[in-house]
């Protein structure tokens, strides 16, 4: 009500505010229009039985959520999604860390190796999956061909319920290592060389240097990588979508939440129920992320600035 506080703000401070808002506006507008509004629309839709072509939605209250709780397929999908994340994230980050450390040294052809590791990130996921599908093909795929030449029994990589999810996780790891490696490389280069020089004088070996200097100082980057990889893994869709049909016997054991959402929304034309599945995913991701952020105090080490 009172105009008091405004008077205290100097003109230059005010113009600074305006500039600040102006500069973040493009991001904010994009975020609100493309992400935040759709989230609320999805939440809204999850209380409806959707009609054809977005018309004639019928309000059903919590029916979709009630159905969700009693749908074994949803819980299979939750299990599959979490299992996938557990297979992909730790292994993927460990591999990214190892390659980053190796490629941070002065070795011959460093740039070439870095490029090779980064190529899967640039490749189109759909095209990559097509190639992997050929490799995995149980009748004339390259992998099974090699296995049979070596007198091993062949494997149904994409149709055996016990194996399909691991086959998919392998692609997930392969395609994310490069990206995480680049992030970690950037982090490694932030670490001042003087620490290594000092520890060398004190007689520390390479291994000890890694655990005492590199690892603690890379934790801020590592934290970022863990959080983003985790979110990405929980949203796995394209590879499973292209690899596993609804008719695939491994479907139950490999369907992810996003794939299930897709099938319910676009295949079975039940967008309301699909929306409820996505809300469940949102809650799961939120819980996982909050836990990670809370836990970071225990292991993330920020260098003192200045």
């Amino acid at each position: 009500m009172s105009r008091g506080p405004y008077k205290k703000v100097s003109l230059s401070q005010r113009s600074e505010w305006y500039w600040g808002w102006f500069l973040i506006a493009p991001t904010m507008v994009g975020l609100i229009v493309l992400n935040i509004i759709p989230i609320f629309q999805t939440l809204y839709l999850s209380f409806f039985k959707s009609g054809d072509f977005g018309r004639g939605n019928i309000y059903v209250g919590l029916d979709n959520y009630r159905k969700l709780l009693n749908d074994p397929q949803v819980w299979h999908a939750v299990g599959n999604t979490l299992l996938y994340a557990l297979m992909v994230v730790p292994t993927g980050i460990a591999l990214a860390m190892i390659t980053a450390v190796l490629l941070n040294r002065n070795i011959k052809g460093r740039v070439l190796y870095r490029t090779i590791y980064f190529i899967p990130v640039v490749a189109v996921p759909a095209a990559v999956t097509m190639v992997w599908r050929w490799l995995y093909n149980s009748h004339y795929g390259l992998i099974n061909y090699l296995l049979s030449r070596l007198n091993f029994s062949t494997v149904n990589w994409t149709t055996d319920p016990d194996i399909a999810l691991a086959s998919i996780a392998l692609i997930g790891i392969w395609s994310t290592v490069g990206y995480n490696m680049v992030l970690l490389l950037a982090g490694l280069q932030e670490i001042p060389k003087t620490y290594y020089e000092a520890s060398e004088i004190d007689g520390a070996g390479k291994i000890r240097q890694f655990f005492v200097i590199t690892l603690p100082l890379i934790t801020p980057t590592l934290f970022f990588v863990v959080v983003t990889s985790m979110i990405q893994a929980l949203q796995v869709f394209d590879v499973i979508y292209m690899m596993i049909d609804v008719t695939n016997p491994a479907y139950e054991r490999s369907v992810s939440l996003v794939y299930l959402f897709y099938n319910n929304s676009f295949k079975y034309l039940n967008k309301g129920y699909g929306s409820a599945i996505v809300m469940l995913l949102l809650v799961i991701i939120m819980i996982v992320t909050v836990i990670q952020v809370k836990a970071q105090r225990k292991w993330v080490y920020y260098m003192k600035e200045g």
Binding site: L31, L34, N35, I36, I37, P38, I39, Q41, T42, Y44, L45, F48, S50, G54, N57, F223, F224, V227, T228, I231, Q232, Q235, F261, S265, K271, G274, S275, V278, L281, L282, I285, M286, T289, Q292, V293, Q296
Partner: peptide
């Protein structure tokens, strides 16, 4: 970092909107 994480989460979660 909490904010950062939330932003990431949102930007990745581009759900289908009921047009």
């Amino acid at each position: 970092s909490m904010i950062l994480a939330l932003v990431l989460m949102l930007s990745a979660l581009t759900a289908c909107s009921g047009n």
